[in-house]
Simulated assay, not measured.
Amino acid sequence: MVIDSRLKAVYEGTSASDAEQRLLTEQLAASMAPDEVHDVLDGACTLIYMFMTWLRKAYEDNERDPIEHVVPDLVATMRMMPRSVRPEVIPTMAGMVVAAGTGLSPNLWRKQYGDWTQEEMNPLEATAFLLAEHINRITGDREFATRMISRALASVQPE
């Protein structure tokens, strides 16, 4: 939902200020138990994996390398976002996207390097946002990525 609301704000040319968005995010995180925060983090990694799986299939269907077309665009865009994405975390995000693009879960990939840090939270969200926007751009449909995730969630059978 966060990704969807950010995409809509960008497409419509409206958005809350960074300070307002940060305050809302902090309030949400403060209202959660530690295991719930971990679940949200896992959810963000799952979104990144699903987006990269879709992108990999789409690019491979056109005989193109998804890593070659997604990662440079992602890195270049993150470099233009120095207030939200510190330069030193860009390689981590790029590595995670490459791992996801080759079929490795971002959660499993990250376990090799320890826990996520506070400094990586905004870049993680930005990565999911940028991948969703990339999907929307190549499909020509501003809601494609959101619909794709909604359909996937709707198809999950309850345990």
Rank of each mutant, 00 (worst) to 15 (best):
V2Y: 12
V2F: 12
D4L: 05
R6E: 15
V10H: 14
E12L: 13
G13L: 09
T14G: 07
A16E: 15
S17A: 13
A19M: 07
A19T: 12
E20Y: 02
E20P: 04
Q21C: 08
Q21N: 10
Q21R: 13
R22Y: 13
R22F: 15
L23S: 11
L23H: 08
T25W: 09
Q27N: 13
A29C: 05
A30R: 09
S31I: 04
D35Q: 12
D39A: 15
L41F: 10
A44G: 04
I48G: 04
M50E: 14
F51T: 00
F51Q: 11
M52R: 10
M52C: 09
M52N: 03
T53S: 15
T53G: 07
L55Q: 06
R56H: 13
R56A: 15
K57C: 07
K57N: 12
D61L: 04
N62K: 14
N62T: 07
I67E: 11
E68N: 06
H69F: 12
V71N: 03
V71W: 03
D73Y: 04
V75I: 14
V75L: 04
A76M: 09
A76N: 14
A76K: 03
A76C: 07
T77S: 13
M78Y: 05
R79V: 02
M80D: 15
M80Q: 15
R83T: 14
R86V: 15
P87F: 09
G95L: 02
G95C: 03
M96E: 12
V97A: 15
V98L: 02
A100Q: 03
A100S: 07
G101N: 06
G101Q: 03
G103K: 00
L104D: 10
S105E: 10
S105D: 14
N107I: 14
N107S: 10
N107L: 09
W109Y: 14
W109P: 08
R110I: 08
K111S: 15
Q112K: 09
Q112E: 12
Q112Y: 06
Y113G: 06
G114T: 01
Q118T: 13
E119K: 12
M121G: 05
N122M: 13
L124N: 06
L124Q: 11
A126C: 13
T127P: 03
L130G: 05
A132F: 08
H134F: 09
H134P: 08
I138W: 05
I138N: 07
T139G: 00
T139E: 15
G140L: 02
G140R: 05
D141M: 07
R142M: 12
R142W: 09
F144P: 03
F144S: 00
T146L: 00
I149Y: 08
A152D: 03
A152W: 04
Q157F: 05
P158V: 02
